[in-house]
């Protein structure tokens, strides 16, 4: 049972990872000239959530922030439209206006982000309050510090909304570490707002364990993860960073490689074609 789940998650991650590697190359080759925020290293969060939620047959409202390619892809956003968007085309998912950070998808109920980190929290809370629909809002460990995010936790808790706050905690605000910025934890803060809150790793099994609470009441998961590439653009801060994808692939051995290669082939070809067509 959990093997099936892990395989689904792995498949999703492999698509996201290969996508991000193509974006990385496109930036390096100057085919993309604006800031991109690569989610490589952090994919298992969205991949796990999307897999869990599909199983539950729920179609949530999704509010993400700048580092959101994996969220878009995991929940089923159209790949071509995202490539078009990154190439600045009108056919893009945000009509060529959204770049990398402000993408959206009507099909999967994913709303665009305005670039001010953390604004997605109050907006998601308002949307959830109005519609009472299951809602997921993605935050970074830094945007979680915004006063309006904290206020959003408070009101979501007061109104007992079916909302899931996901903090993708890569320990970094650009390059400033959490310990430099604060001496508190967002999961403890959420608890003092009388919400259920947990501090877990980005292991898909850990995420799944908490899914019994999803959308019954407001909850917050602070999920510790790792960013493989630069905050913005194509570069590597350290080659010693733990990579969840690699460790998951190992579990599946040869099958893991097959999953990876299949996704790689599909996505490499797609990128190549679309870049040539430009």
């Amino acid at each position: 049972m959990s093997k099936e789940y892990l395989k689904e998650v792995l498949k999703k991650i492999s698509i996201c990872r290969n996508f991000e590697l193509n974006v990385f190359n496109a930036v390096k080759k100057n085919n993309i000239k604006f800031p991109v925020y690569l989610s490589a290293g952090q994919e298992s969060i969205s991949a796990s959530l999307a897999t869990i939620i599909k199983k539950k047959k729920i179609k949530p409202l999704i509010f993400a922030q700048h580092r959101c390619h994996s969220t878009y892809l995991s929940f089923g956003g159209n790949i071509r439209k995202l490539i078009y968007e990154l190439l600045g085309s009108k056919k893009g998912c945000a009509y060529g206006m959204g770049g990398s950070a402000s993408i959206q998808s009507r099909e999967i109920n994913m709303f665009g982000h305005d670039g001010h980190m953390g604004t997605q929290a109050p907006i998601a809370v308002g949307a959830c309050f109005q519609s009472k629909k299951p809602t997921i809002v993605f935050l970074g460990d830094a945007s979680a510090e915004e006063d309006y995010v904290l206020a959003s936790l408070g009101w979501a808790s007061t109104k007992k909304l079916p909302i899931l706050f996901i903090v993708e905690d890569n320990n970094l605000s650009i390059l400033t570490e959490k310990k430099v910025r604060r001496n508190w934890d967002i999961h403890s803060v959420a608890k003092s707002f009388k919400m259920k809150a947990f501090n877990i790793s980005d292991n898909p099994l850990e995420i799944k364990k908490k899914s019994k609470y999803f959308f019954r009441e407001p909850i917050l998961l602070n999920i510790n993860t790792n960013r493989l590439f630069w905050h913005s653009g194509a570069g590597i801060d350290s080659d010693k960073t733990f990579d969840r994808y690699k460790s998951l692939r190992k579990i599946f051995g040869a099958q893991g490689n097959t999953i990876h290669n299949k996704a790689k082939e599909k996505i490499d070809i797609l990128w190549k074609k679309m870049l040539e067509r430009q």
Binding site: F129, V149, S152
Partner: peptide, 13 residues
């Protein structure tokens, strides 16, 4: 600040 955001979220619906 958040209050303005709540209204915006409601408007998106």
């Amino acid at each position: 600040v958040a209050g303005g955001g709540f209204a915006v979220g409601a408007a998106l619906m």
